[in-house]
Amino acid sequence: MQTLVPETDVVKRIVAERRGRPGPLLEILHAIQGELGYIPGGAVPVVAQGLNLSRAEVHGVVTFYHYFRRSRPGTHTVQICRAESCQSMGAEALAEHARARLGIDFHETTANGRFSLEPIYCLGNCACSPAVMIDGQLHGRVTPERFDALIAAGEKAK
């Protein structure tokens, strides 16, 4: 059985490992989100103390960047590109379809904790629009049918 390490210990370790690097705050936040899936509110004072910053400064950085999240994500994170290139190939209809299929709006997580739906502004796959990224895997020319197949795979997978 996996030993549960308290979140604060994880944050303290990450800060200790990286505090000596030049301009380390973003790297530290990336590492925390990488391990815990999000930046818990309790991490902010720990990071602030470790870097000799105010809590406001750390909070300000966490909230400035769209990528950092302050709540636990679903098992799978579904990002739908909403930028111009994907719009020209039906991304708005795809977004509508995704909302209906998952029963949630953007920035929400399904009640069973399976999927989080996030908007994204360009995945750099603009010659294969519309694009979707699921757990870091990129998908191009995504039709509503293909989207449903990807979600069905996510429902089965652990």
């Binding site: 290139s85 502004y121 360009c122 750099g124």
Partner: peptide
């Protein structure tokens, strides 16, 4: 930080 929609040359 290639953020412009329609660009992917950097990538």
């Amino acid at each position: 930080d290639e953020g412009d929609s329609g660009t992917f040359a950097d990538r």
